[in-house]
Design a protein around this nucleic acid. Structure first.
Lengths: 246, 246
DNA sequence: CGCTCTTTTGAAGTGATTCAACCCGAGTGG
DNA sequence: CCACTCGGGTTGAATCACTTCAAAAGAGCG
């Protein structure tokens, strides 16, 4: 389905890298990046509590970042899609705080953090990009947070679907059809809804002719309509340079 | 009530600064920091959409970061307490995305971002601390996010109260009594609850002998009990070096 | 001392969860 | 090739939690 060879987005630190970082920085990054082979669905990239060693980038596929309560049920904290980075919270704690699990056949690359910062010490522009990257993650988190707080299930899922549409179309223009890498349960969990509720809202969207959906295949019929549902929580400058955290 | 002169926490980039940064970095930071005088409750430090110029630190008082939907009602995104930094999302967007409002008489200091990064360019340890700071913000956001998703009003507020207790006792041991700088409505809004619900949960906590509360004055009677309510979403390493974002 | 904003309380309404059953499609083995 | 199984998805009915609306009591501030 998806090619395992591809212009490595692992080096696309945030948006337009080559111009922003300069050729030398790119070369240095390429040298330290460790390309991992394809991981099957369900593979854990790292577990909560493990010592922090590297920041990861998604090349192809998709990752979910989850936390477990002691009952053992998992709560999805974020999704990480191609071109995005995860594992950033480890910088602060020296340990990963989430567990990262592949949702489908997925390839990631690792940027070992010691070496990454060595390079950053010599490359001011890379430093700037790293800061922007982290700031962007904070922004994304806050958007998600605001999207959840005190809004209905429709609004949350409309927001999530539009968000995923944008991120899954990364690079190109937003796509009308796409295949979601996650289950209804995971979709719901990420915005604090039960799987049944998620399913019901999907039905409602179908009846309202907002989307077509069979299984994980989605077709967007009425972006404006979804936007109107999600609108209470949108804000300007909500677009480009999206990245996720772990 | 609170002294306006005090060892400036504006320079306390994250936890134990002097050892971590070195005297020179501290001196440089002190030189660029702009100490603002006391701002009355209700003062806006910056507004969403304004161009990003500086990162702010709270010296005394408290700040709320809010977003407005087009209906005009505000949603609290975060609180910023003494020793914490805010305005970090501006790095990514070149504009502030939230509005920062003083909750009480509050003094902040500004670290103009151009100069801050000039200093960071020459001080590797400062860079490291900045990264850690931002990583910590991401972590905090995720904690809040996880705290909200699919949990009851009791759990959310128990979590919030314990969090505030820890942050308001910054430096010293956790205090048993404290004065909350925000209203019930603001407390509730920050975790996605209506003010009435917040009030009712407070009553419930009182009846359960978990806290005493009259107005904004809180006394913690049973930390363990609160912890048990909030527990589904706690995780280890959740403590030190807290910071907030805007 | 009176005004206003905050907090509290009640009662009714609504939206999401829960529990349970059923369906569907993919994969497996007879 | 078909029956079986298993996980994910859908649907219904009952319950529960939070919100909403309304009203009154407090608290803080001029």
């Amino acid at each position: 389905m998806q090619e395992l060879s591809e212009a490595s987005p692992c080096l696309a630190l945030d948006a337009a890298t080559p111009e922003l970082l300069g050729d030398e920085a790119i070369e240095r990054l390429r040298a330290i990046a460790i390309q991992h082979g394809a991981a099957e669905a369900g593979t854990r990239i790292f577990r909560a509590g493990e010592p922090f060693r590297a920041i990861y980038g998604v090349r192809i596929g998709a990752i979910k970042a989850v936390r477990h309560d002691e009952a053992g049920d998992e709560q999805v904290v974020a999704f990480h899609l191609p071109g995005e980075f995860f594992g950033l919270t480890g910088i602060h704690s020296d340990r990963y705080v989430n567990t990262a699990i592949a949702l489908e056949r997925t390839a990631v690359c690792a940027l070992p953090y010691q070496r990454l910062f060595q390079v950053a010490n010599e490359q001011p522009r890379l430093r700037r990009q790293l800061m922007r990257l982290m700031s962007g993650v904070i922004l994304t988190e806050q958007d998600q947070y605001a999207a959840m707080a005190g809004h209905t299930a429709d609004a949350r899922l409309a927001f999530l679907l539009l968000d995923l549409r944008e991120r899954l179309s990364r690079g190109g223009p937003p796509r009308e059809r796409l295949r979601l890498p996650m289950t209804r349960a995971e979709l719901g969990s990420s915005v604090g809804l039960a799987p049944e509720t998620t399913s019901r809202v999907f039905q409602q969207f179908r009846r309202g002719e907002l989307i077509e959906a069979s299984g994980r295949n989605i077709r967007f019929l009425d972006i404006g309509g979804l936007g109107r549902l999600a609108v209470p929580l949108m804000h300007p400058g909500h677009n480009a340079n999206r990245t996720s955290a772990a």
